Simulated scan of single mutants.
Amino acid sequence: MNTVFATSNILSKNDQMMFQVLKELRLVRQELDELKRTVVASQMEEATDLIETSLEYKSSGSLEEKVTNLLRKIRIPANLKGYYFLREAIMINYNGCGQMMKSIYPNVSQKFNTTPSRAERAMRHAIEVAWSKRNETCIGSLISYRSGRPTVSEFVTGIADRIRLDDGSLENK
């Protein structure tokens, strides 16, 4: 009789453990479903941002507005000096039809009263910040570059060329 009672206690403990495992599995499944929804929403938001970027800077009037819209969509924070340096460098490159970066750094640094090496470092930092926010796909869809994080030169010339292509002015130059 005692063995029958002991067996029923063991079964109920096993049942309790299985019930607990099933509860935990259900929670894990809910967390995975929520994670999937978050990832899909993030991807959709990224795609929407890219479409909006394209529409905004194509329809915006001035070059400065186009460059500003692109830098915002790439999520380069405006509180960084490099943001303003990049904006100026892209506009110089656009107007100079692909001017070499060696000649752009002194122009940017002179406008902002700093040295060329500090200007270059600030621009590199701004690109690193955007890159660390996991915007590789956003940046990669706007410009072409080797592998890894784009250099300042690749970034500036890529954005300027992108605007030229969209404006239709690349064929004219």
Rank of each mutant, 00 (worst) to 15 (best):
M1R: 12
N2G: 10
N2H: 14
N2E: 13
A6R: 11
S8E: 07
I10V: 07
I10L: 15
L11M: 04
Q16M: 07
M17K: 14
Q20Y: 06
K23D: 10
E24W: 02
V28I: 13
V28N: 07
L32V: 14
E34V: 08
L35C: 09
L35F: 14
K36D: 10
T38I: 11
T38L: 13
M44V: 15
E46V: 14
L50M: 15
L50F: 10
T53N: 10
S60P: 00
G61Q: 00
L63K: 02
L63A: 01
L63F: 00
E65A: 05
N69V: 08
N69R: 10
L71P: 02
R75F: 02
I76S: 00
K81L: 13
Y83E: 03
R87G: 08
A89R: 01
M91Q: 00
G96I: 04
C97S: 13
G98I: 10
M100W: 08
Y105P: 01
V108N: 03
V108Q: 02
K111N: 11
N113S: 14
P116K: 03
M123F: 01
A126W: 02
I127K: 04
I127C: 01
E128S: 07
K133A: 15
N135T: 06
G140I: 01
S141E: 08
S144T: 12
P150I: 01
S153G: 08
F155L: 00
F155G: 08
R162Q: 11
D166I: 04
S169F: 01
S169T: 15
L170D: 12
N172V: 11
K173P: 08
K173H: 11
